[in-house]
Design a protein around this nucleic acid. Structure first.
Lengths: 134, 134
DNA sequence: TAAAAACCGACAATTTTAGTCGGTTTTATT
DNA sequence: AATAAAACCGACTAAAATTGTCGGTTTTTA
């Protein structure tokens, strides 16, 4: 019905993995092996998380990744956004040439808006820390 | 960040259109023109809605589509499900061969579960009637 | 009997997702 | 200084899903 990409799923799992490591540095290899995620693909995901400032890297032998800040300070929404981009749930779709006649008061849009709000609200109120404490 | 397919967007708009017609029969052509949606594509969407029992058709000249029941009785969730299928938000993804070591207590899964619940709850509590009354 | 409509299945184009690969740079260790 | 382990990077490819298109068949009204 609704669907979330493996990119986000992998990304969240990697973040949880790092959060459970308490600052200890982890190589991509170890994460990918423990989580059963393709090394090469995970690399691209991790790279986005890094660029978003959620994790940091140390290069060279014995290098690896670690969280850039405390799990308490990392909202799940940030993680997803950094992977999927900012695009909203819907962008109005109409055959080009035809302007949506309703535009300002589109009833469908109202509904999607509610869904969007709820998703934002949940994912911005839950932090990594919330997920790892039982 | 999250995304909804145009299929669902078109489908919802078509349903709203029909709901606003109060039982009056509408041809596919008229819906597609008024909403600016490709005739051929809309046909496939409408067909799913029909098979799901949400709308009914009358064949032949002067034929067309109309809601199978009162807008009050049609949940938005039903509409979306009939178009997108029942598949959940996530299915556990792991390289095959590797069983997810956590399975029962996967922390990521907990989160997706919450999101899923919220989506279900919203879309099953709002009806077509709610959308069209202002 | 002609036209308007729903109905149906096969196909095609486009986009997105998921993944691979080959290399470069950096750093710790020997 | 040399080697190996790691991050880093961009180009490419493969597969899947989405978004359509098309040609025909059936049904019904006028």
């Amino acid at each position: 019905m609704f669907k979330i990409s493996t990119k986000s799923q992998y990304g969240l799992r990697a973040m949880i993995y790092l959060a459970n490591c308490h600052k200890k540095i982890s190589s991509l290899k170890s994460i990918s092996q423990k989580e059963g995620i393709s090394f090469d693909y995970l690399e691209k995901i991790i790279s986005k998380l890094e660029k978003a400032g959620l994790i940091k890297a140390k290069k060279g032998a014995k290098g690896g990744y670690f969280l850039a800040k405390s799990p308490k300070k990392i909202k799940i929404g940030e993680i997803i956004r950094s992977l999927e981009g900012e695009r909203g749930l819907v962008k109005c779709v109409t055959k080009k040439g035809i302007k949506c006649p309703l535009e300002k008061k589109c009833l469908a849009k109202n509904f999607w808006g509610k869904i969007q709000e709820s998703l934002n609200s949940i994912s911005n109120s839950i932090t990594l820390a919330d997920l790892i404490k039982k």
